[in-house]
């Protein structure tokens, strides 16, 4: 498994090709969104909704052999794109690394520039939820 920062750097590289062109960045996000495999209806339920997102985001987490697998989905394509990057970075990592991760890619790819504050709040809520899962699984492991 690649480290969190390694994957972040890959994403930063991929975006750097787009040279900050807003249209292309958003289109790339949509492409990423389309590639994210959808959650089944069984998981697209109220309990799995991340609070704080303007569009709906569903997040589920599984803990096996020391690592967390995240799956997520959204009813909007752009949010799906955003979410897919978080899943790509954090899924498969161990709880400790997830908790201590610094997700600098958001700033580096200039996400704030094209995703306004209301929407990045949604992103923040998503990250928080992922870290909460990490915390919960860690606590469970230590019991």
């Amino acid at each position: 498994m690649k480290s969190i920062n390694h994957i972040q750097d890959e994403i930063i590289d991929e975006f750097s090709i787009l040279e900050g062109d807003l249209d292309m960045c958003v289109e790339y996000l949509i492409e990423l969104g389309k590639k994210l495999s959808p959650l089944s209806d069984k998981h697209r339920v109220e309990d799995n909704i991340v609070k704080g997102c303007q569009s709906k985001v569903w997040l589920i987490a599984n803990f096996q052999q020391g690592t967390i697998t995240f799956q997520a989905d959204s009813n909007t394509m752009i949010t799906k794109g955003l979410v897919s990057m978080l899943v790509r970075i954090l899924s498969g990592q161990n709880p400790d690394d997830i908790l201590n991760s610094d997700l600098y890619f958001i700033h580096k790819i200039g996400m704030n520039r094209f995703i306004g504050t209301q929407r990045s709040n949604g992103l923040a809520a998503m990250i928080k939820q992922m870290k909460l899962y990490a915390l919960a699984f860690m606590a469970k492991e230590q019991k």
């Binding site: 249209d23 958003v26 909007t76 752009i78």
Partner: peptide, 20 residues
């Protein structure tokens, strides 16, 4: 197509609409 996606995409074209 979700209205949110349309709103964000229109914004990238400089067009301000409201969604929601």
């Amino acid at each position: 197509v979700h209205h949110f996606d349309l709103g964000v995409m229109l914004d990238t074209k400089g067009i301000a609409v409201r969604t929601g």
